[in-house]
Design a protein around this nucleic acid. Sequence first.
DNA 1: ATATTAACTGTCAATAGTGACAATAAATTA
DNA 2: TAATTTATTGTCACTATTGACAGTTAATAT
Lengths: 197, 197
Amino acid sequence: MAGRPTNRDERYIQVMKALVRCVARYGLDGASLSHIAKEARLTRPLIRHHVGNREDMITGLTDFVLKSFDDQTAAMVSCLPNERPSSALIDLLFSEDAVSEPDMVLAFAALTARSLDDAKLRRRCRETLLDFEAAIADTLRHDHGDADDAALGAAAHGIMALYFNLTSLAPLDMPKSWQNHARGLAHELLEKLDQPS
Amino acid sequence: MAGRPTNRDERYIQVMKALVRCVARYGLDGASLSHIAKEARLTRPLIRHHVGNREDMITGLTDFVLKSFDDQTAAMVSCLPNERPSSALIDLLFSEDAVSEPDMVLAFAALTARSLDDAKLRRRCRETLLDFEAAIADTLRHDHGDADDAALGAAAHGIMALYFNLTSLAPLDMPKSWQNHARGLAHELLEKLDQPS
DNA sequence: ATATTAACTGTCAATAGTGACAATAAATTA
DNA sequence: TAATTTATTGTCACTATTGACAGTTAATAT
């Protein structure tokens, strides 16, 4: 008694990826169904069939983006080596690949802006961001266990800020010196942890 | 032979401010004329009368936002004291006021995202941003003339990144420790310039 | 007071975007 | 092959948004 096999899950992420791409460029309201359909190489009614109406799409997008961030955070810390994980983390965050695909960060920025009048969304974005920062701080603690929490938190904040800024400004195609500056400053933050004043 | 006096200029900036506010929340496409009219406390046809059709509005917005940044940059450096202008600059950038009004930065972020498929816009945004960074570097040079250009550029980049990140994430209402971290790290960048390795 | 200029209002057609539903095609099991 | 489940397509009504124009009111100079 089973019918045609469902491809709901693949279609769902297919649509979500297209949605992320559109939201990154045109914002939450600028991502029309036609635009998404074209980006996902699907028809408009099909999108509705898989992910529901527009309101469902937006809530689905926030779940998708925030979960992607959480997964990325978890994957990030789990794939680090035992030897000097801090340095590896920075090389990972400021690698070519990470910076060249800014769509997810831009979509997150769109959600951030929308948080201005959506308390629940604001709480969720904040939580995700704090987890990200905490993950960085934990990684730093691994290499610099003797540094105090305030210094670790500050360094983690700096690394996070450098990463977010570089990635969200990626569409401007800034000179490569920016990437070098960012990575260099991040490494300096590490060195600073070794020499507590 | 002169008629009713025109208030085109005041109305224009009145509409532009409302537009910046709307774009900050809802993106370029999400800022509908009705929304802008409500925000500016004007009627929709009146907006058209003063700033033209939608396309005119968007080009007007980019001019307004980028010029505001340029003006802010110029005003920033001109109002600094002769004594330790670098430190005053940081206190200015990371003051309560600067961070609590993120609309302009968020609108700039929306323009940045749109730059993904608009080469001309990308060039203009990049130019504005580089000028901002250069202004910071010049200010730093005033206090740390013996530091080399690479170090100055890196420090300026770090300060810029910390400022942009903090301001663009302001809608999330992050804990105050973030603002303290950002300002503290910026000051550390200054101190680092005094002790060249 | 009258002419003149521009701000302001009201309104309507055209378009874009969305929601919803019916109908068809495809793929699986019994 | 028949039944069943789901993907896929086609289509239409409804709403939101925009563009454009005519007409009205307000404020100045002569």
